[in-house]
């Protein structure tokens, strides 16, 4: 048993919550540097001020959604409804703007929270698997969106400039959208790493039965994770309307899969228990950057999807390989010493 001392993980890695998250974040940053470097060599415009701005703005909406998704996935669940929630929220925001701008923002976030509440209640109280629940609400909410829109489209002309500025203007050159995303990210990261209710989400995903036995209110925590995911998707909807100005009932279609991909690439274990929001956001940034880079390099959109998929598989293969090696090493060591 004395040999367990040797197994201590470096401080940096332990604090991150899972074993290997910091390593993962470093890996993503390297991948990011490679993609940006190669693309900039071919087309220097990629690194212009405007280029970087566009990149960040595009990444922000996905990154924002990964924050809520990460909290849900950590508890061994998944929220597939985020794309629909974003779409519905964006449309309602656009519609209520003529009534009252502040109200519009509240309505957007509120509708998202309401959707999250529905998901959370069905999963936590109804004990229905989240994959099924949120697949259902994905279609239901998109349906509501279509019914509400009735073929209409909201144009930038319908929205006041002050609101649109949310999506483009900023402080000292940093767009508001980026600032909002970073704030949400920071709050969530702090909560997950340093507050009881945050750590309990990891415990739930790591071993649900044991979580019940140590007295964690599992149902309430899972419910809250879905509520947050919904509210964040609502906020992302508001920002979507501000960023693009044009909203129809198809806004955000298919976004949920991008978000789940980003979360997994970012090192959040799909079976819960480990991963960070920062890793997930970096995953979103990497995927978006690859998308933009391929455009700049004039590679067709078909390849973009194939590359996203390949990256996802590579990330999972890496996780699996590392986990197996770790398990084997730990097994060998704890037995080898005590026997």
């Amino acid at each position: 048993m004395s040999g367990t001392q040797d197994l201590a993980l470096p401080e940096r890695r332990r604090r991150a919550g899972g074993g290997m998250t910091a390593v993962r974040e470093l890996g993503i940053l390297i991948a990011l540097a490679v993609v940006v470097g190669v693309t900039a060599l071919v087309n220097p415009l990629f690194l212009s001020g405007q280029g970087i701005r566009d990149l960040l703005l595009n990444a922000c909406l996905v990154a924002l959604l990964t924050v809520g998704q990460t909290m849900v996935v950590i508890t061994r669940n998944v929220d597939l409804s985020v794309g629909s929630v974003l779409g519905f929220s964006a449309f309602l925001t656009g519609d209520t703007f003529s009534v009252d701008p502040a109200l519009a923002i509240v309505v957007g976030i509120g509708v998202g929270a309401l959707c999250g509440l529905l998901n959370g209640a069905l999963v936590a109280a109804g004990k229905v698997p989240s994959l099924v629940v949120t697949l259902g609400t994905l279609y239901v909410i998109r349906g509501l969106d279509y019914a509400w829109a009735q073929g209409r489209q909201i144009n930038a002309a319908n929205l006041p400039d002050g609101f649109l500025a949310l999506g483009s203007a900023g402080v000292l050159g940093v767009p508001y959208l980026v600032i909002i995303t970073v704030i949400v990210l920071a709050v969530a990261a702090l909560h997950l790493s340093s507050y009881r209710s945050g750590r309990e989400l990891y415990a739930i995903g790591s071993n649900p039965e044991a979580a019940v036995l140590v007295g964690i209110p599992v149902g309430r925590r899972v419910f809250t994770a879905f509520l947050v995911s919904g509210a964040v998707a609502g906020l992302a909807g508001v920002l979507w309307a501000a960023r693009y100005g044009t909203v129809d009932a198809t806004a955000g279609t298919g976004l949920e899969l991008q978000v789940v991909s980003a979360v997994v690439v970012g090192g959040v274990a799909i079976f819960g228990g480990s991963g960070t929001v920062v890793g997930a956001a970096l995953g979103a940034l990497l995927l978006t950057t690859i998308g933009s880079a391929l455009e700049v390099l004039h590679i067709t959109a078909f390849w973009q999807q194939a590359i996203t998929g390949a990256l996802l598989l590579a990330a999972i293969a890496l996780d699996r390989a590392v986990a197996l090696r770790q398990a084997a090493a730990l097994r060998r060591q704890s037995r080898g010493v005590s026997a």
Binding site: T4, Q326, S334
Partner: peptide
């Protein structure tokens, strides 16, 4: 003598 910083995964049954 168990290191509090190591992950619980991989501990022997006794530990």
């Amino acid at each position: 003598d168990i290191d509090p910083r190591r992950p619980a995964r991989g501990l022997s049954i006794a530990d």
